[in-house]
Write a protein that binds this DNA or RNA. Structure first.
Length: 582
RNA sequence: GCCCCUGUAGCUCAGCGGAUAGAGCACCGGCCUCCGGAGCCGGUGGCGCAGGUUCGAGUCCUGCCAGGGGCGCCA
């Protein structure tokens, strides 16, 4: 198939964009064709309008000139100027079928590995030791996991770092509570995952007893001073908590594991060096006994320069020091070319300051990117922020268990005929998938309304809908005699439903690109949902197994199978599994 | 007081400076001798307000209004 070799990428938009770019270049170097999907054609290029304005030319004439200079004959069936100077492009059916054949013949579905792979550190999840994981941790964990999987698929070397809160003043209180409970009782409580009760009881006792407060303060000093017995107790807290986190991660189905835990405490040995470095570069200013750096451009409420406090007046280190040490370590030791922080939006200014200081100190060179992948709040159905100490916090495990239960109930209502073990497995994929997808499908910078009913509803833009579309396709293949379509099949694209599905399939590469460009899983979700609806419409309106002839049948089977593969791959990149039956 | 984020249909959300602002839920109306009805086809309904920039603004700028968050020793 020479026609196939001409377009190695199954990224239709990129091919068209490149052709137009070449044509625009002959008129003026470096003009963006401004290629967009169009209602009136497959694509529209709007670049002629802006260029005409700059050159003082008639936009329609200029658009005509671009068309005349562009090599489009082999990929477009219709190219015309419309309106004030839009170039409307309709792709040639032969081009579409060749492109989709390339995609189908590729294990990676036409997604080329990044030409410039880089080492990326991604910091996400970060629960606190001896504290329950609640819905607030859902977003960071799920978004971080999706980005990790997708960046890795794109060919990058991704290093996960779970920056757990395992250090700081509360640990004096927590260790004393551990002592008061007795180690065995405490371990028993923690190992069953009742971190909430442990923390709450510790806090209650602490608040009520000045003696305990005194002991806690002393304990912090011992902990920071490296007292062996205190450290041992501290390690018990950490180990039990991490074991519990792993259980939650297992339920949630995310990649994080023990070796990814790089808690705040791991930077303790590097903190003195951070201060020394900053001192040597003359960046430190002593202020009321605290060592500060004043990055330019930050002011407090009085309009005075705002410090990043590296060392507190009592000699202790705050989280600014830890975060600086982490940057230094990730770039200096690990060789990260990019660092992603999947952390809530309220910390935006903190990260801006940390990055600014790290740049001033030379730890973060200009060619290393540091990005705060921020996400907004989780709101309750009442649109108020869900806060940890408000009493009515939802434990993450309970949320996940209920999601699975609801999936089971829904399956029971549909009288799904599966054996018990497969049934349980599918319920898990559906329930957990629904929770994850509900979170991922909303723009991460917007507040996310957590609503049981909506999240677990099995219609609309939800994971179960996508999973269902996938299962229906698998059912076609179970029903027919064939496992897979002959990979050499080149689909015929004539029927409007076939055509719409083909165009949708070819949107996969740009959709992944859009997700990675902006670190927005919601873009991939939107694409997958569009693909699923386009497929279902195709499937309802176009006979597949009962196609009029063998060639059409094979062609449609190919489109169906490819749809299933895109759905399965796309969802897996989001951390969501797909059952064959449901 | 200053800074950041958000404001799109009754509700939940898409909209990368371009043509008539799209979905889903809910509501209304069709489709079960037909490959899985957790579905398909169709309908009602909207850019917080006021200016400005632009050939063109939901998108960019300014002001206001509303909600949320942040603003030196908690993380």
């Amino acid at each position: 198939m020479p026609v196939v070799a001409k377009w190695p990428m199954a990224d239709t938009r990129a091919v068209v964009d490149a052709r137009l770019r070449t044509a625009f270049d002959t008129i003026e170097e470096g003009v963006d064709p401004v290629l967009r999907p169009s209602d009136r054609a497959d694509f529209q290029a709007n670049g002629a309008l802006g260029l005409a304005k700059r050159l003082g030319r008639n936009p329609r004439e200029l658009a005509e000139e671009v068309i005349a200079r562009a090599e489009l004959a082999d990929i477009c069936s219709v190219v015309e100027v419309s309106g004030p100077g839009f170039i409307n492009l309709t792709l040639a059916d032969g081009f579409l079928s060749a492109q989709v054949a390339v995609m189908a013949g590729d294990e990676r579905l036409g997604i080329e590995a990044a030409p410039d792979p880089s080492k990326i550190v991604i910091d996400y999840s970060a629960p606190n030791v001896a504290k329950e994981m609640h819905v607030g941790h859902l977003r960071g964990t799920v978004i971080g996991d999706a980005l990790t999987r997708t960046l890795a698929f794109a060919g990058h070397e991704v290093i996960r770092e779970n920056h757990v809160g395992d250090w700081g003043t509360p640990f004096g209180m927590l260790i004393e509570h551990l002592v008061d409970l007795g180690e065995e009782t405490a371990v028993a409580e923690l190992s069953v995952g009742d971190l909430d009760a442990f923390y709450r009881d510790a806090r209650t006792a602490y608040d009520a007893s000045p003696t305990l407060q005194e002991r806690s303060r002393n304990r912090v000093v011992l902990l920071q001073g490296g007292d062996e017995d205190t450290l041992r107790l501290w390690r018990v807290l950490v180990a039990e908590s991490v074991a519990y986190f792993n259980e939650v991660y297992g339920k949630l189905g995310v990649l994080l594991e023990d070796s990814d835990v790089v808690g705040e405490s791991s930077y303790n040995p590097m903190l003195d060096a951070v201060v020394e470095d900053l001192g040597e570069r003359g960046l430190l200013v002593e202020n009321d006994g605290a060592l500060c750096v004043f990055p330019p451009g930050f002011t407090n409420r009085e309009g005075e320069p705002l410090p990043l406090i590296v060392r507190k007046s009592d000699g202790g280190y705050g989280y600014a020091a830890t975060d600086l040490a982490a940057v230094r370590d990730r770039v200096g030791r690990l060789g990260a070319r990019r660092i992603l922080y999947v952390v809530g939006a309220p910390q935006a200014q903190h990260f801006e300051m940390v990055f600014a200081v790290a740049r001033m100190a030379g730890w973060l060179p200009d060619d290393v990117e540091a990005v705060h992948v921020s996400f907004a709040n989780v709101l309750g159905p009442d649109h108020k922020m869900l806060k940890t100490r408000s009493g009515s916090t939802i434990k993450l495990v309970e949320l996940l268990d209920e999601a699975v239960e609801r999936a089971e109930t829904a399956m029971a209502e549909r009288q799904v005929d599966l054996d018990p073990s497969e049934r349980a497995h599918v319920a898990r994929l559906l329930g957990i998938g629904a929770v994850k997808y509900a979170d991922l499908s909303t723009d991460r910078t917007r507040d996310y309304v957590f609503d049981w009913e909506r999240m677990l509803a099995f219609d609309g833009n939800t994971a179960p809908y996508l999973q269902y579309a996938h299962a229906r396709i698998r059912s076609i293949f179970r029903r027919s005699e064939i496992d897979h379509v002959d990979p050499a099949t080149v689909p015929v694209v004539t029927d409007p439903f076939e055509r719409a599905l083909t165009v949708a399939l070819l949107g996969f590469a740009p959709a992944l690109g859009a997700m990675l460009e902006t670190y927005s899983p919601s873009k991939l979700c939107a694409y997958l949902y569009d693909l699923a609806t386009t497929f279902t419409s195709f499937y309802e309106n176009t006979p597949v197994l009962r196609a009029p002839d063998e060639a059409t049948r094979n062609s449609r089977l190919l489109l169906a199978e490819l749809t299933a593969r895109v759905l399965a791959l796309g969802l897996s990149l989001l951390g969501i599994g797909v059952p064959d039956r449901m």
